[in-house]
Protein backbone atom coordinates (compact mmCIF):
# COMPACT_ATOMS: atom_id res chain seq x y z
CA UNK A 1 0.00 0.00 0.00
CA UNK A 2 1.23 3.45 -0.99
CA UNK A 3 -0.36 5.31 1.96
CA UNK A 4 1.26 8.72 2.29
CA UNK A 5 2.21 9.87 5.77
CA UNK A 6 1.60 13.53 6.54
CA UNK A 7 4.66 15.60 7.38
CA UNK A 8 4.53 17.17 10.87
CA UNK A 9 7.66 19.26 11.57
CA UNK A 10 8.93 18.87 15.13
CA UNK A 11 9.67 22.58 15.70
CA UNK A 12 6.20 23.95 14.96
CA UNK A 13 3.10 24.36 17.13
CA UNK A 14 -0.34 23.15 16.00
CA UNK A 15 -4.06 23.58 16.54
CA UNK A 16 -6.99 21.18 16.52
CA UNK A 17 -8.15 23.00 13.38
CA UNK A 18 -5.07 21.67 11.54
CA UNK A 19 -3.12 24.90 11.44
CA UNK A 20 0.54 25.30 12.17
CA UNK A 21 2.14 28.19 14.05
CA UNK A 22 5.80 29.17 13.79
CA UNK A 23 7.52 31.76 15.96
CA UNK A 24 9.20 34.36 13.73
CA UNK A 25 10.15 36.86 16.46
CA UNK A 26 9.53 37.65 20.12
CA UNK A 27 5.90 38.56 19.49
CA UNK A 28 5.25 37.46 15.91
CA UNK A 29 4.15 34.16 14.42
CA UNK A 30 3.59 32.78 10.93
CA UNK A 31 0.50 30.64 10.29
CA UNK A 32 -0.53 28.12 7.68
CA UNK A 33 -2.42 24.84 7.35
CA UNK A 34 -0.79 21.47 7.90
CA UNK A 35 0.24 18.89 5.36
CA UNK A 36 -2.52 16.65 6.73
CA UNK A 37 -5.08 19.44 6.16
CA UNK A 38 -4.02 20.13 2.58
CA UNK A 39 -4.10 16.40 1.83
CA UNK A 40 -7.65 16.17 3.14
CA UNK A 41 -8.77 19.25 1.20
CA UNK A 42 -7.37 18.23 -2.15
CA UNK A 43 -6.29 20.76 -4.76
CA UNK A 44 -6.58 24.24 -3.30
CA UNK A 45 -8.02 26.61 -5.92
CA UNK A 46 -8.66 29.76 -3.88
CA UNK A 47 -7.39 31.28 -0.62
CA UNK A 48 -9.08 34.26 1.00
CA UNK A 49 -6.84 36.05 3.50
CA UNK A 50 -7.47 39.00 5.86
CA UNK A 51 -6.11 42.48 5.12
CA UNK A 52 -3.01 43.88 6.78
CA UNK A 53 -3.77 45.68 10.03
CA UNK A 54 -6.85 43.64 10.88
CA UNK A 55 -6.99 42.44 14.45
CA UNK A 56 -8.33 39.02 15.23
CA UNK A 57 -9.42 37.14 18.34
CA UNK A 58 -8.77 33.50 19.07
CA UNK A 59 -11.15 31.30 17.10
CA UNK A 60 -12.26 34.11 14.80
CA UNK A 61 -12.41 33.33 11.09
CA UNK A 62 -9.26 34.59 9.38
CA UNK A 63 -10.11 33.52 5.89
CA UNK A 64 -11.10 30.61 3.69
CA UNK A 65 -9.44 27.83 1.77
CA UNK A 66 -11.40 26.46 -1.19
CA UNK A 67 -10.73 23.22 -2.98
CA UNK A 68 -12.74 22.15 -6.00
CA UNK A 69 -15.03 20.23 -3.68
CA UNK A 70 -15.25 22.21 -0.45
CA UNK A 71 -14.64 25.39 1.51
CA UNK A 72 -12.93 25.46 4.88
CA UNK A 73 -12.56 28.37 7.26
CA UNK A 74 -9.17 29.31 8.60
CA UNK A 75 -9.47 30.12 12.31
CA UNK A 76 -7.16 32.44 14.21
CA UNK A 77 -5.18 30.19 16.55
CA UNK A 78 -4.07 33.23 18.59
CA UNK A 79 -5.18 36.86 19.10
CA UNK A 80 -3.23 39.54 17.32
CA UNK A 81 -2.83 41.92 14.42
CA UNK A 82 -2.23 40.81 10.85
CA UNK A 83 1.25 42.12 9.92
CA UNK A 84 1.92 40.08 6.77
CA UNK A 85 -0.10 38.06 4.26
CA UNK A 86 1.15 35.72 1.57
CA UNK A 87 0.03 37.53 -1.59
CA UNK A 88 1.51 34.77 -3.76
CA UNK A 89 -1.49 32.63 -2.90
CA UNK A 90 -3.76 34.92 -4.95
CA UNK A 91 -2.14 33.63 -8.13
CA UNK A 92 -0.78 30.32 -6.87
CA UNK A 93 -3.18 28.85 -4.31
CA UNK A 94 -1.67 25.43 -5.06
CA UNK A 95 1.41 26.42 -3.05
CA UNK A 96 -0.71 25.35 -0.06
CA UNK A 97 -0.60 21.83 -1.48
CA UNK A 98 2.95 21.72 -2.74
CA UNK A 99 4.68 23.44 0.18
CA UNK A 100 2.27 23.82 3.13
CA UNK A 101 4.98 24.74 5.68
CA UNK A 102 7.04 26.88 3.31
CA UNK A 103 5.80 28.93 0.37
CA UNK A 104 2.23 27.96 1.20
CA UNK A 105 2.21 29.97 4.46
CA UNK A 106 -0.79 32.25 4.93
CA UNK A 107 -0.40 35.12 7.38
CA UNK A 108 1.76 36.55 10.15
CA UNK A 109 0.33 37.91 13.36
CA UNK A 110 1.77 40.25 16.01
CA UNK A 111 0.53 38.76 19.23
CA UNK A 112 -0.97 40.56 22.21
CA UNK A 113 0.13 37.71 24.44
CA UNK A 114 3.26 36.03 23.03
CA UNK A 115 3.18 33.42 25.79
CA UNK A 116 -0.04 31.97 24.38
CA UNK A 117 1.99 30.14 21.73
CA UNK A 118 3.20 27.73 24.41
CA UNK A 119 -0.37 26.57 25.03
CA UNK A 120 -0.78 25.24 21.48
CA UNK A 121 -0.28 21.56 20.60
CA UNK A 122 3.24 20.30 20.06
CA UNK A 123 4.11 18.00 17.15
CA UNK A 124 3.55 14.82 19.17
CA UNK A 125 0.11 15.91 20.37
CA UNK A 126 -0.87 16.98 16.87
CA UNK A 127 0.36 13.71 15.41
CA UNK A 128 -1.98 11.87 17.78
CA UNK A 129 -4.86 14.15 16.85
CA UNK A 130 -4.37 13.68 13.11
CA UNK A 131 -3.93 9.92 13.50
CA UNK A 132 -7.23 9.71 15.37
CA UNK A 133 -9.26 11.26 12.53
Amino acid sequence: MKERTAVIPEELKYTEEHEWVQRTGDATVRIGITDYAQEQLGDVVFVQLPELGETVDVGQTLGEVESTKSVSDIYAPLAGEVVARNDSLDQQPDLVNSDPYGEGWMIELRLGDPGAVDDLLDATAYQELAAGE
Binding site: M1, K2, E3, E39, G42, D43, S67
Partner: peptide, 24 residues
Protein backbone atom coordinates in the same frame (compact mmCIF):
# COMPACT_ATOMS: atom_id res chain seq x y z
CA UNK B 1 -7.33 1.60 -5.67
CA UNK B 2 -5.36 1.11 -2.46
CA UNK B 3 -2.25 0.16 -4.42
CA UNK B 4 -2.62 3.38 -6.41
CA UNK B 5 -2.77 5.41 -3.18
CA UNK B 6 -6.41 6.45 -3.53
CA UNK B 7 -8.14 8.67 -1.03
CA UNK B 8 -11.57 7.16 -0.46
CA UNK B 9 -14.98 8.60 0.21
CA UNK B 10 -18.16 6.94 1.42
CA UNK B 11 -20.82 7.42 -1.20
CA UNK B 12 -24.27 5.84 -1.15
CA UNK B 13 -23.04 2.98 1.02
CA UNK B 14 -19.94 2.34 -1.07
CA UNK B 15 -16.28 3.02 -0.34
CA UNK B 16 -15.25 4.76 -3.58
CA UNK B 17 -12.04 6.41 -4.74
CA UNK B 18 -12.38 10.20 -4.43
CA UNK B 19 -9.01 10.86 -6.02
CA UNK B 20 -5.68 9.14 -6.47
CA UNK B 21 -3.39 12.13 -6.52
CA UNK B 22 -4.67 15.48 -7.71
CA UNK B 23 -8.30 15.82 -8.75
CA UNK B 24 -7.32 18.73 -11.02
Amino acid sequence: HEALGAMFTDFAGWRMPLRYDSEL
